[in-house]
Nucleic acid binder design. Structure first.
Length: 901
RNA sequence: GCCCGCUUAGCUCAGUGGUAGAGCACACGCUUCACACGCGUGGGGUCGUAGGUUCAAGUCCUACAGCGGGCACCA
């Protein structure tokens, strides 16, 4: 069989995904066991305009490992994919295209035509991320793929809206919102970024009516003073106590405004007096409500000054107006001072424009009320469970506990149009359909609200709407809800986690997921967050091309929930690991004639050779460790266990120990059995690796002799799919095959081989040169052990001759020696190669090391406090160790003597 | 201001109160019949600082420092 020496990931990656998908391996229906437990995940829907970034790749890897693992365990498994419509991003993208290609705005073509174009754009370009996901190897059920603008999901959105409206949770009214002057829409608090910025703090003097006193206020936005309707001070501030209730004259404008007392004001800050602009600041808005202050809007939706700001300012940009206002204050001597000041500004998350807080009529959702049930569930039962618990459980709880109304409406065209209609008299009718609204209005000429809903409003329904809600008795909802886990990034806790919990609790009465796994953040190698503006992002597809998908997945799985600086070295090391797997399989396959997977381990394990009992024990322990690690979301532990089992145990030792049998010149049952054993262990290892490395494992598994339908998990045998490792049973740890004695004995053999190799290297014995070994067993039963493994020991130490004796008394003086655990010793006669002085120094160093260790252990043992208080088991352990050390030191001393002074 | 996390080998990171680990990097040797993306051998750490608890602390507690994050405030 011709197998290349180097693994080519591309070839395997292109080979299997299509077949898995075509044959329905990803769909839960492939499972024919009606009593199978269920495992389900709803993907956090990526943005339809987006392309894959490292964060997606990380999340998808985690989800795919879990999905493939539970599928191989026989669970009825569903991982449901899809995308959201990303209202603003998508609309902006299409608007830009329209401008570029036809020089038109969306208003030029009209709403209906524009939406048609967005759909067309979506059909043409929207599939990018889905193609990239196939490249990742994700085992999502594409037959259930959903899009938030699908007819069904749109119906779910209307249902959500109408029900909440009917219950009074959704209302329409004026409120203080974040307005983006560029995108011309309202935004929720989660769609804006706060940024620290160097600016100025202006101290303005406001005259007190009927007095020559003045009150100085400090502000970062002087232009808003045109809309001031009060000045506030702290009720406990004695400096202003006598002024409370008096009237001030607002400079420039001449408006009379009151001086009020409010708890909000911090007397320590600035002058202790705050100008109040209820129409342009969220805090002032609240204060205005408390004191019944007028709201004067001086800035419009384009961030220009309004007529109310005064004829002199009307139409000016807010920053121009600022300069003029400051100038005016200066001229009239009312500008006390200007100081440098760092403050934070709010910017639109998408376009970076400075947000203008203003009063606007919008639709709002009383989130705090929807959060009540999730909050109760969390406080009473700690559900859902966060992994890692710290700090995310607290972040979630704090968020739910501190919610305020969510601005739902967006002044966009692309999205779910608000199901509210108005009659000629301006009365509003909220309904599931226009027909319902007409019936309710008793009129035909209704106009639908022009606004659409926040994209996150539809994402909030994702776990239930994708499974069929609001349809009564939807079988998917019944089977797959609640989902098993939500895997996402930490900033999504507010956007998805909490809101999905709200809708799940409200409409299904149950949590949306059992667990929430929060992935770590991947930084660049300098520790900087990856971002488009910094252009320091690492493209996962480039990494796939360079190192292969499987290697990349292994790195991502190990990252799990840890914040990490990306490091290509790690991927390279796993690329090498993939190549190691490839070559181990290459060896097994090149020597597979006469053997099949499953053969070679016949009869009672007690009769097997040591290294066979050992590898089976290691295999079962590894299966146990990997399963435990995956189920506990400790993916790095699973990867570590797999890496070391495969490379160290299987390749470095088991294959080497089996080599002489496997490659024996004469064919025969013994050779074939040995071949069957390496194949069998390899096949089991491929299953263990499969959730992490789907492509290479499938590529190799397909080539193994003796795998077929019977290899599949019993739940998949009737499915009629091409036998595949992804539907094979994940190896269950058989504790009866875990053999501690075999492992201890193998440790002795490994130590012997390692000591001899060390001697060979240190004494510069040529690798090709054969040596002679004398093993002294001190009559403690190790003799049989070493004798039984003699052929293996000879091969691994490149020894022509090995003799096992009671002691090393008879060995030539010109020998290099080493001490082994359990009182055994080994000598390598090296006539002519030994420099006695050097050898004495070498052994002297070894003895010194042991003596130092013994001193430490002895010190502890001679401490009565330790012996008295530590568990007897620990004390005994240490005594054993001390005895072993003493034995070694004694033996090393004898060796020094034998070498002569 | 409040809360949280991190600080372990040159780098990236594991680490469960009981002998400090891995990968990469480094050094030396190797055309050993699966693999140089490899094989063998080795060097390298007062576990951020200072206290405390304990027979025993990288691990638990307190304080501090540096880095990072969240929330609040930011007139």
């Amino acid at each position: 069989m011709e197998i290349p020496k180097t693994y080519d990931p591309k070839q395997a990656e292109e080979h299997h995904y299509g077949r898995w998908e075509r044959e329905g391996c990803f769909a839960p229906e492939v499972n024919g066991d009606p009593s199978a437990p269920v495992y389900s995940i709803a993907i956090p829907p990526p943005n339809v305009t987006g392309s894959l970034h490292m964060g997606h790749a990380l999340q998808h890897t985690i989800m795919d490992v879990l999905t493939r693992y539970y599928r191989m365990k026989g669970f009825r498994t569903l991982w449901l994919p899809g995308t959201d419509h990303a209202g603003i991003s998508t609309q902006i993208m299409v608007e830009r295209q329209l401008k570029k290609e036809e020089g038109k705005t969306r208003h030029d073509v009209g709403r209906e035509d524009f939406i048609g174009r967005v759909w067309k754009w979506k059909e043409q370009y929207g599939g990018e991320i889905q193609r990239q996901m196939r490249r990742e190897g994700v085992s999502v059920d594409w037959s259930r793929e959903r899009f938030t603008m699908d007819e069904h999901l749109s119906r779910a959105v209307r249902e959500f809206f109408v029900r909440c409206y009917e219950e009074g949770l959704i209302y329409r009214g004026p409120g203080m919102i974040n307005w983006c002057p560029k995108d011309q829409t309202a935004l929720s608090d989660l769609e804006v970024d706060k940024e620290s910025q160097a600016g100025k703090l202006y101290y303005l003097r406001y005259p007190v009516k009927g007095s020559d006193r003045r009150v100085t206020v400090a502000t970062t936005r002087p232009e808003t003073m045109l809309g001031d309707t009060a000045v506030a001070v702290s009720p406990v501030d004695e400096r202003y106590a006598d002024l409370v209730g008096m009237t001030l004259i607002l400079p420039i404008v001449g408006r009379e405004i009151p001086l009020v007392a409010d708890e909000f004001v911090d007397p320590e800050f600035g002058t202790g007096a705050v100008k109040v602009t209820p129409a342009h600041d969220p805090a002032d808005y609240a204060m205005g409500k408390r004191h019944g202050l007028a709201q004067v809007s001086v800035i419009d939706q384009h961030a220009r000054m309004t007529a109310e700001a005064g004829a002199e300012y009307e139409g000016l940009d807010r920053y121009e107006a600022r300069e003029r206002v400051v100038q005016k204050f200066e001229e009239s001597g009312l500008l006390e001072k200007v100081v440098d000041y760092e403050f934070s500004i709010t910017k639109c998350e998408r376009c970076g424009t400075v947000i203008e807080p203003l009063i606007s009529t919008q639709w709002f959702l009383k989130q705090a009320e929807l959060a009540r049930e999730p909050l109760r569930l969390f406080r009473e039962r700690r559900e859902p469970r966060f992994v890692p618990e710290n700090p995310y459980a607290k972040v979630y709880e704090n968020w739910l506990a501190g919610l305020y109304d969510w601005t739902l409406s967006r002044q966009l065209w692309w999205g779910h149009r608000i199901p509210a209609w108005y009659d000629a008299g301006g009365n509003v009718y909220v309904a599931r359909t226009e027909e319902d609204a007409r019936r309710a209005a008793g009129a035909d000429d209704l106009e639908q609200d022009p606004d659409v809903l926040d994209t996150w409003f539809s994402s909030a329904l994702w776990p239930i709407s994708t499974l069929g809600w609001p349809d009564e008795g939807s079988p998917d909802l019944k089977t797959f809800y609640p989902t098993s886990v939500l895997v996402t990034a930490r900033d999504i806790i507010f956007l998805w986690v909490s809101r999905m919990m709200m809708t799940g609790m409200k409409f299904e009465g149950r949590k949306a997921f059992d667990d929430v796994f929060i992935t770590g953040t991947i930084f660049d190698k300098h520790g900087q967050r990856m971002s488009k503006t910094k252009a320091n992002g690492i493209d996962p597809l480039v990494v796939f091309d360079k190192y292969g998908v499987d290697a990349t997945r292994l790195v991502l799985a190990s990252i799990g929930s840890t914040d990490t600086r990306w490091n290509d070295n790690q991927v390279e090391s796993y690329r090498n690991f993939a190549n190691k797997i490839w070559n181990a399989a290459r060896f097994c396959l090149m020597n597979s004639e006469g053997a099949r997977v499953g053969g070679g381990f016949e009869g009672e394990p007690e009769r097997w050779a040591l290294h066979d009992r050992w590898i089976v024990s290691r295999l079962n322990k590894t299966a146990r460790e990997v399963a435990a690690a995956v189920e506990a979301y400790q993916f790095h532990e699973a990867v570590y266990a797999l890496y070391h089992f495969f490379w160290d145990d299987f390749c470095d030792w088991y294959i080497e120990l089996s080599k002489s049998d496997v490659t024996a010149a004469d064919a025969g049952p013994e050779r074939d059995a040995a071949r069957g054993r390496v194949l069998t262990v390899l096949e089991q290892a491929l299953r263990l690796l499969h959730p992490f490395m789907p492509f290479i494992t499938e590529e190799l598994w397909q080539r193994l002799p003796g795998v077929g339908k019977e290899s599949l998990h019993v739940a998949y045998r009737e499915a009629g799919v091409t036998p595949t490792v992804m539907l094979a049973a994940f190896p269950r740890a058989d504790e009866s095959l875990v053999d501690e004695r075999a492992e201890a004995e193998m440790r002795s053999v490994i130590e012997l081989v390692s000591r001899v190799r060390n001697i060979r290297t240190e004494l510069s014995v040529k690798p090709s040169e054969e040596v002679r070994l004398v093993i002294g067993t001190a009559g403690n039963g190790l003799g049989d052990l070493f004798t039984a493994s003699l052929p293996q020991i000879k091969r691994l130490t490149r020894a022509a001759d090995v003799s096992v004796r009671d002691s090393l008394a008879e060995v030539p003086r010109a020998s290099a020696r080493a001490v082994l655990a359990g009182g055994a010793e080994v000598a390598v006669p090296l006539e002519g190669l030994i420099d006695f002085e050097q050898e004495r120094a070498r052994i002297g160093r070894a003895r010194e090391k042991q003596e130092k260790e013994l001193q430490k252990v002895g010190g502890q043992l001679s401490n009565p406090q330790f012996v008295g208080r530590a568990p007897a088991e620990k004390v005994e352990e240490l005594r054993q160790r001390a005895a072993d050390l003493a034995g070694r030191i004694k033996a090393l001393g004898e060796m020094l003597e034998a070498l002569g002074e």
